[in-house]
Simulated scan of single mutants.
Amino acid sequence: MKLKVNFPEERVKSPILSEVILKTGILVSIVSSRVDSAGGEIILEVLDKSYETIKDEFESRGASVTLLDTLICRKKAECVDCGACISVCPSQVFSFEEDWSLAMDTQKCVRCGLCIDMCPHQALSIEGTDCE
Score class of each variant (00 low, 15 high):
M1C: 03
K2V: 02
K2F: 07
K2G: 04
L3R: 00
V5R: 00
E9K: 01
R11Y: 11
R11P: 05
V12S: 04
K13N: 06
S14F: 07
S14V: 09
I16L: 11
L17M: 14
L17R: 04
S18E: 14
S18A: 15
E19S: 01
I21Q: 05
I21G: 06
L22F: 14
L22K: 14
T24R: 05
G25S: 05
I26T: 13
L27Y: 12
V28A: 12
V28E: 11
S29G: 10
I30G: 00
V31H: 00
S32R: 10
S33G: 14
S33P: 09
S33D: 14
R34W: 11
R34H: 13
R34I: 11
R34L: 11
V35P: 07
V35R: 02
S37V: 12
S37N: 08
A38Y: 13
G39L: 13
I42N: 07
E45D: 13
V46C: 06
D48K: 09
S50G: 08
S50W: 06
S50D: 15
Y51G: 07
Y51K: 08
T53Y: 03
I54E: 13
I54Y: 07
I54Q: 08
K55C: 03
D56S: 05
E57T: 09
F58C: 04
E59T: 02
R61T: 12
G62M: 01
A63V: 04
A63T: 09
A63C: 13
S64E: 14
S64T: 15
S64P: 09
S64M: 13
V65P: 09
T66R: 07
T66F: 10
L67N: 01
D69N: 12
T70Q: 06
T70G: 02
K75Y: 09
A77R: 08
E78M: 07
E78K: 14
V80A: 05
C82V: 05
C85E: 13
C85W: 12
V88E: 05
P90W: 02
S91A: 14
Q92V: 06
Q92I: 02
F96A: 02
E97A: 11
E97K: 10
E98G: 01
D99R: 01
A103H: 08
A103D: 13
D105Q: 00
T106C: 09
Q107E: 15
K108Y: 12
R111F: 05
R111H: 07
L114D: 14
C115L: 00
C119Q: 10
P120W: 06
L124D: 08
S125G: 01
S125H: 03
I126W: 08
T129P: 02
T129Y: 08
D130G: 01
C131I: 02
E132S: 11
